[in-house]
């Protein structure tokens, strides 16, 4: 006789329900419905908010973020030399471009490129090209940092995995890679010091 109005049983199901509302119950019913709604939604909101710390704990920690920027001293890098620095666990190519390399990059007609981008948009200072050294095809590290290594047909970098050729502005010229080498965010702190990240 004391059957409850379980949440599921309130659906128009007929036979399950035995409780019969008496007089004056209509008012009580709406008040209970309101209380029911507020209680359950408060619980739902609380549970959802309580999940946030657990989700956020998987984001990069303060330790990871503290190492999120790298400073590079440009002083010892000679013209024509390329060095690799690590930034957020990824290799970054810093190339001190020679005049010929700059000119080769600037002479290329942009509309012939797969990923059209003029050289001016890819560097802050013409003599310094700074790109992320990860092939945009499938994530290999292209070769060409050392003078003896193959630099591809355009004198930039060559990815040995699937044969992508990059030019002296790090732009894709031949092979399967879809995009130019990505650019990390960086600023020149002084003329000889650059901060990546």
């Amino acid at each position: 006789m004391m059957r409850a109005l379980g949440m599921w049983e309130q659906q128009p199901k007929g036979g399950m329900m035995t409780a019969t509302p008496s007089h004056g119950d209509a008012d009580r019913g709406t008040r209970r419905d309101f209380l029911e709604l507020v209680s359950w939604s408060t619980l739902a909101v609380g549970t959802a908010v309580a999940l946030w710390p657990f989700i956020d704990s998987l984001n990069p920690s303060k330790e990871v973020l503290a190492l999120a920027s790298t400073e590079v001293d440009l002083e010892p890098i000679e013209v024509g030399q390329r060095v690799t620095v690590m930034w957020r666990g990824k290799p970054v190519f810093v190339a001190h471009r020679s005049q010929e390399e700059i000119e080769a990059a600037r002479a290329t007609p942009v509309d012939e490129l797969r990923d059209p981008e003029p050289d001016e948009q890819r560097v802050q200072r013409p003599e310094w090209l700074i790109v992320i050294g990860i092939c945009t095809h499938l994530g290999c590290v292209p070769v060409g940092q050392r003078s003896g290594e193959p630099r591809g047909d355009w004198g930039g970098w060559f990815c040995p995995c699937h044969g992508s050729h990059y030019d002296t502005a790090g732009r894709i010229r031949k092979g399967p890679a879809p995009r130019n080498l990505d650019l990390p965010p960086y600023t020149f702190v002084t003329d000889t010091l650059v901060r990546i990240g």
């Binding site: 409850a4 008040r31 209970r32 209380l35 029911e36 209680s39 408060t42 619980l43 609380g46």
Partner: peptide, 14 residues
Amino acid sequence: LVLTGLFYAYKRKI
């Protein structure tokens, strides 16, 4: 505290 109050009222009602 609010949640507990709500569920107390709700419980009383039920």
